[in-house]
Design a protein around this nucleic acid. Structure first.
Lengths: 332, 332
DNA sequence: GCTCAAGTTGCAACCGGTTGCAACCACAGG
DNA sequence: CCTGTGGTTGCAACCGGTTGCAACTTGAGC
């Protein structure tokens, strides 16, 4: 059926080892043999079987990419960046969709069956135990968008969510809002909790400010909309920090229902700066999370771990900044 | 490092074959041996190496999932559905992001290196030659969202795009629009061409109707917006069929810029019925494409091809229907 | 022409499994 | 007690590669 080492060796009139060596970096082959082999390989349309070689080398170049977030548009950007960054380095993403899975053991077993070289947990709504399960099973792992404080044993790449909460609070204060609210993601997401903490900490210095908060069921449009509708029934905040752009977009939709003009009557600041936030019809003031840098750095880290498996764990934290658009009133 | 057959065999006091057989469906092992092996395997935390076994069985359960569409939110739904459908059947998606790739040969080679059991080309903007390249290389392939007419040798799952174009035209006619336009996807997408053809064919029966058209650069918000802005400069159509919801959303944004009220002053009908189209702030009248059925069927077909590789190619076409929302004026 | 080091090559064992085959076993039927 | 049968088991070869090792080739230096 498919062309193997043996076929090429036969055609080129050399041993199987010689063929193998011409296809492995830095092996000792003479120019003459190499060219004979390359000619034969080309003639037969041979390409080495990566899986078979993984048996002896222990390297598959397969990277498990684990996520559960398929309802937040930012994740289309995340998948795009991850798949491209991995491909550029000759690595292959093996996707695991954890939407209806809560047990780390299953994913770990599955990815070990396929001998992935490493795993990337790309979600802030998966508990630290997920990344830790891979680490404990001896699989190099990076938790992208994770929280470093509670995962000292694994590599974490992302942002300082507490600081982002503070940043949002400062931004609302600077614009003179007196009654503010936090509309966060699900309570099981470390990002939602940390952003909440930062927001509250900063406002604790300003006891004159009135604060409310809530946590949505998910990082999704519907959840953001539902919570904002609830707020609008009895709360009188003038501005909200929504813990994610997709929640913000849901919230904006709720405001529209109530005939409220974002920016003018009610302020909204999001977090992520997803593509959609730039759309004129959304025009969301938001905190930019440097997705591209985070992902490139995650993949760099993966590569380095492959070279040095016992690498001491680190957290790579990237700064965020406010992007001014139309959903907050201007600074005085 | 990791636990192998041999370790389990040694602990259980049986041969390696016995261990292998307890883990393969339908092999002949006595209840006694099986329980001994299972006990030992559990004790050591053994799980078989899928890649090693693929060497002899020729099955990896790896499925190449190839796409280039990472700027259309519908693809988040597509990836979600695909990854789940594959997982449910014990198959593993190996993603290939073709955003900056135009040469099929590379992807084919790559996926053959990983011995994928089959490939799914999930895009209407990739040329038929992509799917064909896999077919020619002996890799079972399904072109989801493909066009059956120009790909008789590969399996295609999707919708009848020509009929959708007609459907859109009929819908605009039924609502009494006299000047209409088609705002399609990129010209290299079979879907964009076929929808165009159907739209025009239907309108050819109504010479009194004034028709314009254009093709956007991509299936993206920006492209849809840009084309609609261009239309608004000199065209006076009353309603547009946008060949995709994301183009529609871009177009809606352009209308808003010009102070035009969709539904009232200018009609828009999309195609896909993505999640966002249901949002109150979008509220897009659109043609529903049954994504879930298409994907489930694609994966079913993949499974059947694995059983019967020489299966005669077929096209599975699912009917679409108009979803009435707020961007077309009501039927009289 | 001889020596020797460096570079090249093939053999054979191995990676972690699967599987055809023949030997073996227990047991039912005569 | 013998025979035949069907189920179970282990051996050994194989899947498509890699790699340590020893043997070989080559060519420079004297």
């Amino acid at each position: 059926m498919s062309v193997t080492l043996k076929d090429v060796a036969a055609l080129a009139g050399v041993s199987r080892s010689a063929v193998s060596r011409t296809f492995t970096e830095g092996a000792s082959v003479s120019a003459k043999t190499r060219s004979k082999v390359e000619k034969a390989a080309h003639e037969l349309g041979y390409s080495p079987n990566a899986l078979a070689s993984s048996l002896t080398t222990g390297r598959t170049k397969l990277i498990g990419l684990i996520s559960n977030n398929f309802h937040n548009p930012i994740f289309l950007e995340v998948f795009d960046q991850f798949t491209r960054a991995l491909q550029e380095r000759g690595l292959r993403p093996l996707i695991v969709n954890l939407t209806d899975e809560t047990e780390p053991a299953n994913s770990v077993r599955m990815l070990r069956q396929y001998s992935v070289d490493a795993a990337i947990v790309a979600s802030s709504t998966l508990p630290p135990s997920f990344a830790k399960a891979f680490h404990d099973a001896g699989v190099p792992v990076v938790h992208t968008f994770g929280r470093s404080a509670t995962s000292p044993e694994v590599h974490v790449v992302g942002i300082d969510n507490v600081e982002c909460g503070r940043m949002a609070a400062r931004e609302l204060l600077a614009r003179g809002y007196k009654r503010v609210g936090y509309l966060g993601g699900p309570k099981n997401a470390t990002s939602a909790l940390d952003r909440y903490r930062g927001f509250m900490e900063e406002l604790a210095n300003h006891p004159e400010i009135d604060v409310t908060h809530c946590f949505a069921d998910a990082y999704s449009f519907e959840a953001g909309r539902a919570e904002m509708l609830r707020f609008l029934e009895d709360t009188t905040a003038q501005a909200y920090f929504c813990g994610d752009d997709i929640l913000s977009v849901g919230a904006l939709s709720a405001l529209k229902d109530h005939g409220l003009q974002p920016g003018q009557e009610i302020g909204i600041i999001g977090l992520n700066d997803m593509e959609m936030s730039r759309w004129e019809s959304v025009d969301l003031t938001t905190i930019h999370q440097p997705i591209k840098q985070i992902i490139t750095s995650s993949v760099d880290l993966i590569e380095e771990m492959l070279k040095e498996p016992q690498r001491y764990p680190e957290a790579r934290i990237f700064p965020c900044r406010v992007i001014e658009r139309g959903t907050l009133r201007p600074r005085p």
